[in-house]
Design a binder for these strands. Structure first.
Lengths: 195, 195
DNA sequence: ACAGAGTTAGAACCGTACTCAAAGTTTGAG
DNA sequence: CTCAAACTTTGAGTACGGTTCTAACTCTGT
């Protein structure tokens, strides 16, 4: 609708306010029990109002993921900029992987994959985050090895997908497969290729 | 409860009947709109009855995944047994990856990852399927290369997780990232390592 | 035939996503 | 300053689906 885009442009601050409330709500009540009411309460408004801005529960969650991911994107850049290549690699892996089975950012990803958005624009934004992570990783790898641009890119994409797969197991809570296990596995794979 | 385990033992056929109905229902009405009613209709019973056997919607879905995965496990063994190593590798990748964004088996996985089961027994069974795929892949790889048992196992696990990650993108429906793209990416990675 | 356990159906219940109409607030033109 | 139009906000209302409950039914063993 025209309404939607107008609002998005006019009141980005309001949307951000709701999305922060959503993050807080997820942390506090957990994903399984999350109601729109929980978000509305924390944002200091009514459930109808939250729906007025976002249209549906799923849209709120997708938007929350987009914000959370954009946020991390910035933090990542800022933090990795002044680390040497080895430390940067280690830190990137740490930032990428879930902290545990209840990691909010990853729970959001899981949710969105289980009920994917229909509109292409959102899908492209999600893809953008995939690419951003891969690009950052590729840059670090080039500092660590004599790989060419193409090979580094390939390495980066493969390892991002590897981390996605490992994250699934962490999210499931498979016994023994926790965050530390995942990190170790990724770094081992990277080292074995980089020599 | 005692009730639950008793039923599971006494009436495995009834459970299987419902689960097959669930698969059918998912195919027909899609995941987003799936109601217990849709499953009950197809199984020729009431919603109350379905819940009597499974206790909750989530349990039905987890059980459906377990059955579907066990089924594929068998089919895979049977089919790969009489293929040469190259063909077997190709076919395993094809069987593992989603056929498209609506692949029922993978939608079930996505659902289960988004709302993981609590009980350890189920988690271990899920882990069992991970291991089974990896073992099968490792065996094929050993036929194709001179890798040792340990290296082949490592190769297999890494590539299973890689396929999981690629599957996420297929499920999301990221433009350009379809089933064929995923297959190509996996095989490229495998070839590059196996030489 | 009967008791009692196990099974089945479907109505009732309850919680939650979503709608809607009306009231409140801001904005900007005259 | 006034007023109307657009936008915002609310909360009650609706619809719907998961879950629970109860009462009827079936089957088995005696």
């Amino acid at each position: 609708m025209a309404r939607e885009s107008k609002i998005a442009l006019d009141r980005p601050d309001m949307r951000a306010h709701v999305l922060k409330a959503a993050l807080l709500a997820i942390e506090e009540v957990g994903f399984a029990r999350l109601r729109i009411r929980d978000i509305a309460d924390r944002a200091g408004m009514s459930t109808g109002h939250v729906l007025y801005y976002f249209g549906s529960r799923d849209r709120i969650l997708v938007s929350t993921l987009l914000m959370s991911e954009a946020d991390l994107d910035e933090r990542r850049r800022a933090e990795l900029a002044h680390l040497d290549a080895h430390a940067a690699l280690d830190r990137l892996v740490e930032l990428y992987l879930p902290k545990g089975p209840h990691d909010v950012r990853w729970r959001l990803w899981a949710q969105v994959i289980a009920r994917p958005p229909e509109d292409e624009e959102t899908l492209l934004r999600l893809d953008g985050f995939f690419r951003s992570w891969a690009a950052e990783l590729a840059a670090i790898v080039r500092r660590l090895s004599d790989l060419g641009a193409e090979a580094a890119e390939d390495f980066a994409v493969r390892h991002c997908r590897l981390m996605d797969g490992l994250s699934n197991e962490v999210l499931l809570g498979i016994p023994g497969h926790d965050a530390a296990w995942a990190k170790k596995a990724v770094l081992a794979s990277m080292r074995r290729e980089l020599g």
